[in-house]
């Protein structure tokens, strides 16, 4: 037994009187109005209710502090989504599936996230990762349904959430200063245009490269004499180009 333990236990003021006084104070406070929000009948987002609490307790309840960064159902602005896949990559619960939505061309379909709220942990990584700020989290929290399938929100449904103009979680991660860039290993590239075709931001341009003179006895590789050039300021670092490249000639690195 520690010394303090003995002291507390043998001191009736410390052990009995002080806690009893604290409890009495709390009792007096919550006799007026306990903190409980009687949820289905009272809602924090109801301005009238907040007004009532503010009057009863003499101080406003945390609209700003609690509310702005609340992470509820997502809102998706389909119009600005660039189908970069970053949200699905960053989801730790693998609850995002990229599904085709109307609006792309046949060769290059537009894909937007579909979220399964049965799995989502509301971590917000997806909206942090979204480079366009089109996937955000709102303050909507009522998701109860009778069917499991209704827990899966299609991009259209997420867009409906977007259109309700609920307060949205505006937190955006700053892009780090020294981000890696997409680099090319030129000898491997065959100029197939796959990266430029699939780049969601169209920041890859295929530029002509000079076709070298074939030396005696040497065979030039069979390829298209073009090479991708990445516009770093437009690139959202989604890695699509790396994953579509058939020759694995793109990689992350720092340009010298």
């Amino acid at each position: 037994m520690t010394e303090e333990g003995t002291a507390t236990e043998e001191n009736p003021v410390l052990y009995v009187v002080r806690p009893m006084a604290t409890a009495a104070k709390q009792f007096a406070k919550s006799l007026v109005r306990p903190s409980t929000v009687i949820y289905p009948f009272e809602r924090l987002e109801d301005p009238a209710f907040r007004e009532e609490v503010a009057v009863a307790s003499g101080k406003p309840i945390g609209v700003g502090a609690i509310w702005d960064n609340y992470r509820g159902v997502h809102a998706l602005n389909i119009a600005t989504c660039i189908s970069c896949n970053l949200c699905a990559f960053s989801c730790p619960d693998l609850c995002i599936e990229m599904v085709t939505v109307p609006g792309g061309d046949p060769k290059h379909p537009k894909k937007c996230p579909e979220i399964d709220y049965g799995k989502c942990s509301y971590c917000g990584f997806c909206s942090d990762a979204c480079p366009e700020g089109c996937l955000t989290m709102t303050t909507r929290y009522e998701l109860a349904t009778a069917k499991r399938s209704e827990m899966v929100y299609s991009p259209e449904k997420l867009y409906e959430v977007f259109r309700t103009k609920l307060p949205m979680n505006p937190i955006r991660l700053e892009r780090p200063e020294n981000e890696d860039q997409i680099l090319l290993d030129p000898p491997l590239c065959i100029g197939c245009n796959a990266c430029a075709r699939d780049c969601p931001t169209a920041c890859i341009t295929m530029l002509d490269v000079a076709k070298p003179e074939a030396k005696a006895g040497e065979k030039l590789p069979k390829r298209i004499w073009k090479e991708p050039v990445v516009n770093d300021s437009d690139c959202v670092r989604c890695g699509t180009c790396i994953s579509v490249c058939p020759k694995e000639c793109l990689f992350w690195g720092k340009r010298p």
Binding site: S30, S35, T36
Partner: peptide
């Protein structure tokens, strides 16, 4: 009910 108020809640209601 009393314990609820002591704990800043309402108890059975």
């Amino acid at each position: 009910k009393l314990l609820g108020r002591f704990m800043d809640r309402r108890g059975a209601m």
